[in-house]
Amino acid sequence: MLDRRDVVRALLEDRGDLLVVAGLGASAWDITAAGDCPNNFPLWGGMGGAAVLGLGLALAQPQRRVLVITGDGEMLMGLGALCTIAVKKPANLSVVVLDNEHYSETGGQETATRHGVDLAAIARGAGIADSRVVHGAQELGPLRQAIHATTAPLFANVKVAPGNHPLVLPPREGAYLTARFREAVLGPAAHHQL
């Protein structure tokens, strides 16, 4: 079974100017473990909002690639976002769920995916044609390439092992996370434009 830190490290390899949003909890620790940087936007809250936050970013920055990495529990809380994304069809947005079939951050309770709920089928049903389930390490390279090359929204449900990793925490100050991200994307004008 895939290890979530290995998955995230593989997907973020040679990331170029890829913009990355991470859902609250373990996904945010994972992208930080792979290397904190201004092009990362780790969430500390807003459970259920990661994918659609990525949509807003992708629509505002159509020339940049946007990757949302989040947990199965976080995705389940905002399933409608898959419909909203499918309808807008951003060519530059990928959503990757690290599906450990548990709410790991809160004590390892089972999620609905543990009981057969198929997030990729839901995404496909919403209209995201390229919706994959990933089980093996050999599928990560092609997924990474697709994130950088897709011309339509992409969804991948990556099955990963349950269990917690050591905490690697990103900065906690929300204003700082916003300011550094906007400056990285927009340049110094980020703090002056109205």
Binding site: G49, G56, A60, G80, R182, V185
Partner: peptide
Amino acid sequence: MTVVTLTTEEEGVAMLVGSWLGGAKG
């Protein structure tokens, strides 16, 4: 205008934070 019809209003809150991160006003 980029108009996004949401499935629930809370999506709009998260979405517009993303718009702002990308330099757009919503």
